[in-house]
Structures are given as C-alpha cells and as structure tokens.
C-alpha cells in the first residue's frame, strides 16, 4: 500500500496524480494532509501544489473527458468525503488507460461513485441557493450564515453575484470558517474570525437594520398562512427541508 498525502487543494490533488504516474506507485491511497491517517501506511509520499504538474494533468484530462465529467470530478472533490480522492484517482487512471471514453461506464465502481457524489454536491449547491437567508445590517450589507454538508461556497458564488448585482452581500460558511463577499464589483473569498458574541450577542438591533426584524416577521407569517393544515404532510416537509438546515431559516424559528 502506498499513501500519497497532498496539501488539501484541488491543484494539490492534481499534483498528486502527476506524482503517482511519475513514481509508478501501485495501489495508492490519496489523503489530505490534515487527516493524519497516513501513519497507518508504510510508504508515505508528500506533495504540495506544483502549477506545472497540475496543469499537465488537467490538460491531459481535458483530452480524455467531457466538460461535464471534469465538472463532476471537481464537484466530487468538494464533497470532502473520506476516501473520495482515491476514487478520483482510480477514475482518472481508468480514463487515461482507455482509448474510448469511459465517463458513462456506470458499471465501474469509481465512475459511478464520482457521478453519485457529484450529484449530492450539486444537490447541496442547489439547497444553499435556496436556503441562504440574508439579513440586512445597519451598514446595508446583506449577510447570511450557512453550514452546508459539502464545501459549496465556490459553486454558489456565480449564482449570487448574478442575482444580487445591486446589493452588497456576504455568505459565511460557519463550518469551514470562511466566506464570500460581494462589494458591487466582484466576489472575494474572505476569512473572518468572529469574536464569540459579536453577532449572537444581546444587542441584535444594533447590528441589523431597523426594518430587518419586521420583514422577518412578515416572512414568518406569510410562511404560516400559505400552509394548508388539512393537507399536513410532515414527512414530505422534512424530506425537502431537513432539520439540520433549520438553524438559519427565519421561517422555522418561533414567531
């Protein structure tokens, strides 16, 4: 068994793929640096990000795979699921090793897995486009917090930039501790470390625009009014709006 430990970036993973070919590693497991699982293995190879190597692998992949398959590969990587990098490698090795296109061969376990995981990430992306709830702050910033299952901020950025082109906004991933901020010109990735009580503190009204709570109340009562009680279907409700997302949804908070 050969472990390849990379730096946790997508380009780092591409670099790792390059090294696997260069060193002719067999039965490889690919890990992120912080996971610390590599100690179980005898042979450990470390890679950082090397633009040239990453670029060559990507270029090679572009010749073997359609844009859709390349996108699925990137989506799967954003899932951060344990072991996904190894399946991505197997997928890539299968692609490079075949003359014909293999990306629709769902009888291959890694091809199927990548496509299924990519689908889950895509669903999470779509959910975040739906469940982001902006709150207007006193300095007229529309601010939202999310805790998505997968690292989807890079995927939703374009959607929000296109849609809310005339307002300053920020979406913060509380689980991964970084956010995206739009300043009316462009979207930037930013790392913020909030002091524990700066936003959850006692004096909310000092942070939020005076109309903010009013609109949240209106939204809550709208949400309540459109429900048809005689058609209650809790299972369906939970299926579409899983509980783990309720924390940041004003309509699921008590009136």
């Amino acid at each position: 068994m050969q472990a390849v430990v990379y730096d946790g970036s997508f380009k780092g993973w591409l670099t790792a793929v390059f090294d696997v070919y260069e060193h002719r590693f067999k039965s490889v497991q690919v890990y992120k640096e912080e996971n610390g699982e590599q100690s179980m293995f005898g042979h450990v190879h470390h890679t950082g990000t090397e633009e040239a190597k990453a670029g060559r692998v990507w270029k090679g992949l572009q010749q073997k795979l359609s844009n859709r398959a390349l996108q699925e590969l990137y989506y799967a990587w954003l899932s951060e699921l344990k072991g996904i990098e190894t399946h991505m490698l197997l997928f890539v090795q299968y692609a490079f090793g075949s003359k014909a296109s293999i990306e629709n061969d769902y009888s291959h376990p890694s091809v199927l897995l990548i496509s299924q995981v990519a689908k889950k990430v895509h669903r999470e992306k779509h959910r975040m486009e739906a469940f982001v709830r902006f709150q207007l702050t006193t300095d007229q910033l529309y601010y939202a917090i999310i805790e998505p299952d997968f690292n989807v901020l890079p995927l939703i950025s374009d959607h929000f930039e296109q849609r809310y082109a005339d307002q300053r906004w920020m979406i913060y991933d509380a689980r991964r501790r970084y956010g995206i901020y739009y300043d009316l010109e462009k979207v930037e990735m930013i790392e913020v470390s909030f002091q524990q009580d700066s936003l959850s503190g006692k004096d909310i009204s000092a942070v939020y625009d005076e109309q903010e709570t009013l609109y949240q109340h209106l939204w809550q009562s709208y949400f309540k009014s459109v429900n048809i009680a005689s058609r209650k279907n809790t299972r369906l409700h939970i299926q579409h709006m899983p509980r783990r997302y309720w924390k940041y949804l004003p309509e699921k908070k008590p009136l």
Binding site: N227, N233, R235, L236, H237
Partner: peptide, 14 residues
C-alpha cells in the same frame, strides 16, 4: 432553473 426556497408543513414548495 427555478428554486424552491422553503416548504410548508403540508410539503408544498414556496
């Protein structure tokens, strides 16, 4: 594509 932003307790999309 259309987005359902919320779902009421009867399971219909908002």
């Amino acid at each position: 594509m259309g987005i359902c932003h919320a779902y009421t307790e009867d399971g219909r999309c908002v």
